[in-house]
């Protein structure tokens, strides 16, 4: 599909377009965090603790007197990083295993699919927490663990695409011309299987951001004082009866971010679907 056609079809969906604009905005905010944030995110003002939103601190201050807006802005960097690194890992593993299973079939396929099904038997939160319990909680460990425990969907997708593609005429033609396995996979099969992977990766970013914030909220993800949305919510939890702004805004930020990626993902799905 050419780019122009794709863009027209994507832009025709109002919700997807709104999502895309929000995603771009968020990229800009986290890139310019240093300039946009009115205060240092970790600078406490002991005399200005738990002050409600006002003209000085637009979104109020937390229990240590740190500016909530500045922490939100810096927190967006963590979310973006986690989302993209974790999904990069998920997609890489999923592509490798899915390709191997779908292209070679037989024993390789059986083994990979059994492994995949077994991993799917575990409630993902249980598996993730069990691994995290053994490691030091840190942003890198969170990204790696999310990546290692959520590749199954991508692997199944890629496998299914490969199985339908590998017996079609164009594959046979390429093989008849003497293309090697690697060439066949990289130049003929993979490009045709990328559309659903792109959709699932976009939705995956949303999922990873949500997961990171849950882990940080539970105290098992990124550690304080780093400003992340999950950590901010965990901090705000104890003041829920007195200072609603500590919990409300970080949660809203997560909601909007996850929503935007989901909207873009759904938009991509519809725009890339050849049946439409």
């Amino acid at each position: 599909m050419n780019l122009k056609l794709f863009l027209t079809r994507f832009a025709a969906q109002r919700l997807a377009l709104i999502g895309a604009i929000l995603v771009i905005l968020m990229f800009m905010v986290s890139a310019a965090a240093g300039r946009l944030a009115p205060y240092d995110p970790n600078h406490p003002e002991p005399r200005n603790r738990l002050s409600p939103p006002s003209s000085g601190h637009i979104l109020g201050t937390d229990a240590l007197g740190r500016d909530v807006l500045s922490r939100l802005i810096w927190g967006s960097q963590v979310s973006l990083k986690v989302g993209f690194v974790a999904v990069g890992l998920t997609t890489t593993i999923g592509l490798l295993l899915g390709t191997a299973a779908g292209y070679y079939g037989g024993m390789v396929d059986d083994l990979i699919m059994i492994f995949c099904d077994l991993m799917l038997c575990f409630p993902s939160m249980f598996l993730i927490l069990a691994v995290i319990a053994m490691l030091e909680p840190s942003i890198w460990n969170v990204m790696i663990v999310i990546g290692l425990t959520s590749w199954m969907g991508v692997a199944r997708l890629v496998r299914a695409e490969f199985i339908t593609l590998k017996n079609q005429d164009f594959t046979l033609a390429a093989r008849a011309l003497g293309a090697s396995d690697l060439r066949l996979i990289l130049y003929h099969l993979l490009p045709n299987a990328l559309a659903p992977v792109l959709v699932s990766a976009t939705l995956g970013v949303a999922g990873a951001i949500l997961l990171e914030s849950s882990l940080s909220f539970l105290g098992l993800g990124v550690q304080p004082p780093t400003a992340t949305w999950g950590v901010m919510l965990a901090d705000g939890k104890d003041y829920i009866d007195r200072a609603w702004w500590l919990s409300f805004y970080p949660g809203l930020a997560i909601l909007i971010t996850v929503l935007s990626y989901n909207l873009v993902g759904e938009g991509l799905r519809d725009a890339l679907d050849p049946r439409n």
């Binding site: 949500l210 849950s214 009866d241 949660g251 929503l259």
Partner: peptide
């Protein structure tokens, strides 16, 4: 459709906190 997209994206622990504040406190 719009409501479900929002419900799907809202972190459950955040909704739980807000519900605690509103219905509980």
């Amino acid at each position: 459709t719009v409501l479900f997209f929002i419900g799907f994206a809202a972190p459950s622990f955040w909704l739980a906190l807000l519900a605690m504040r509103y219905f509980g406190v």
